[in-house]
Every structure is written in C-alpha cells, then in structure tokens.
C-alpha cells in the first residue's frame, strides 16, 4: 500500500454510501418492470465498488492485488453465462 484515505475522505465516502442507500430505498418504491433487478444490482455494485476501492484500499494496491480482486468477478460471469446458456437453450418436452 502506498497511500490511504484521510478521515475527511472516509467521511465523504460514507456520505456517498448513505446517499446510495437512499437511492436504493427510493428505487424500490417504483415498478420498473423487468429492470427492477438490474437497477438494484447496479446500485449495489456501485456501493460494493466504493467499499472495495476505499475502505478495502484496493485503489492504492498493485496490479497483482487487482488481479486477485477482479478475477472472481470473471468467474461469477462464467457461472452466470454458462448456467444461463443452459437455461435459455434447454428444450422442455
């Protein structure tokens, strides 16, 4: 680690997370149809990204740590992609 956040930055990030929580609750009040889950996932992903970057210090880490941190996202993509390929191309008699 070569750097880290100041207390003020941590406070601002906390405020941002609180704001995103309000957005999450607000979005739940409306029915976006098939977009309900993608919108909720998008907000949650932004929150997770902010936590990983700042509270978990990923922003200040080297390339190797980034590989370790992001590779599971690739695996999650594989799990969803292959399972979805099965489900959407399955022929049910």
């Amino acid at each position: 680690m070569v750097n880290s956040n100041t207390y003020k930055q941590y406070f601002n990030i906390w405020l941002l997370l609180m704001f995103l929580t309000v957005i999450t609750v607000g979005a739940a009040q409306f029915d976006f149809g098939s977009l309900n889950i993608p919108i909720a996932m998008l907000i949650a992903s932004i929150k997770a990204g902010v936590v990983a970057l700042h509270f978990m210090h990923l922003k200040y880490e080297d390339g190797m740590t980034w590989i370790f941190a992001t590779y599971p996202i690739f695996l999650l993509f594989l799990l969803i992609a292959f399972s979805a390929t099965d489900i959407f191309t399955r022929v049910v008699n």
Binding site: L78, F82, T85, T89
Partner: peptide, 18 residues
C-alpha cells in the same frame, strides 16, 4: 477446471448446446 463443471450433468436435462 472452472470451465468444465457441466460434464457432471450431461444427463441431468441441461441443454444440448451447453
């Protein structure tokens, strides 16, 4: 090894393509 799990499921009813 992360890419081959479906070979345990060839007769489970999963799709022909997968």
């Amino acid at each position: 090894s992360f890419l081959v799990w479906g070979h345990h499921m060839f007769v489970s009813g999963q799709s022909k393509l997968i």
